[in-house]
Design a protein around this nucleic acid. Sequence first.
DNA 1: TATCATTCCTACTATTCAAGTAGGAATAAT
DNA 2: ATTATTCCTACTTGAATAGTAGGAATGATA
Lengths: 150, 150
Amino acid sequence: MRISARTQYALGAMLALAVADSPVHAEKIAVTQDIPRRFCDNILLQLRRAGLIRSQRGPDGGYWLARPPGEIALADVIRVTEGAEQALRPFSPAAAPLAEIWDRLRSQEDALLSEITLADVIASRDRHQDRDRSSGNGQDVPSDAGRGMS
Amino acid sequence: MRISARTQYALGAMLALAVADSPVHAEKIAVTQDIPRRFCDNILLQLRRAGLIRSQRGPDGGYWLARPPGEIALADVIRVTEGAEQALRPFSPAAAPLAEIWDRLRSQEDALLSEITLADVIASRDRHQDRDRSSGNGQDVPSDAGRGMS
DNA sequence: TATCATTCCTACTATTCAAGTAGGAATAAT
DNA sequence: ATTATTCCTACTTGAATAGTAGGAATGATA
Ligand code: FES
Ligand code: FES
């Protein structure tokens, strides 16, 4: 799969919401995540339509996650922003067996991205901030990390 | 990684060479693999420069594999045609931990594609042609398949 | 009720990248 | 010489991504 700027931005925005404990303005997200202001609006809208986030208009409005960070997988976000990848063009019969391989690649990738949640990413980041407390330190990102929003 | 038409074509061409037992014209490859004629030239040239195939000019010329099909992994071909994927743009600090994940994705993918050789693909194709001879049939593509060129 | 800050929506422009083409030079067989 | 092929650079085109524009709808506050 392609990792577009849009996807990168969307994940950044989702992470920003995951660590906040109250609604966040698009403006703030745009600034802290370094996303072009108008583009940020655009992406947040898409995420809301997909049901990943909720929103409130007017002053004192903003965005927040629809579910706790531990229940949102990276794949959930990516599927939205990358949309349905257009089927790759027909194969010459001779190259047909390659299709099976592309399928394997995709499932492999999907498996990984479906297992990692926003909470995992945040936990991993926090672990990297206080560098190596123990010697044989954090390898795996545990899937049971953050549940609440703070 | 992206599976471009170019990559698809290149793999088709390599497979065509893998099953041939003497030099093959670009023309023939283009026809049998359904590759636009001129584009085919273009791709073959790139493959030759990368050292994956050899060539001979003039009438009675053509292309052939530089190594036996069992020693050419799909990754070898793909790395050539996809080129050095341009580094994805800088992350906002907040989204930095994602970089690690992209890396994991890439290695996972590279591992799979490095294990499968042209010979494996051909063997798999042949196995699919005579449909299910035994009941619990071929799951894995053995890596020790064809060695010679026929 | 007026005002203001925000989200929401459609549609547009610009930039980049992949796909494919063009024209011919170099080489080798006959 | 002629002809069939590979070889090489550069160009054109099409599609997709990235980002922008303009304003309508909503909701808080006074
Ligand atoms: S990155 Fe998605 S299949 Fe390779
Ligand atoms: S297809 Fe290569 S990393 Fe996703």
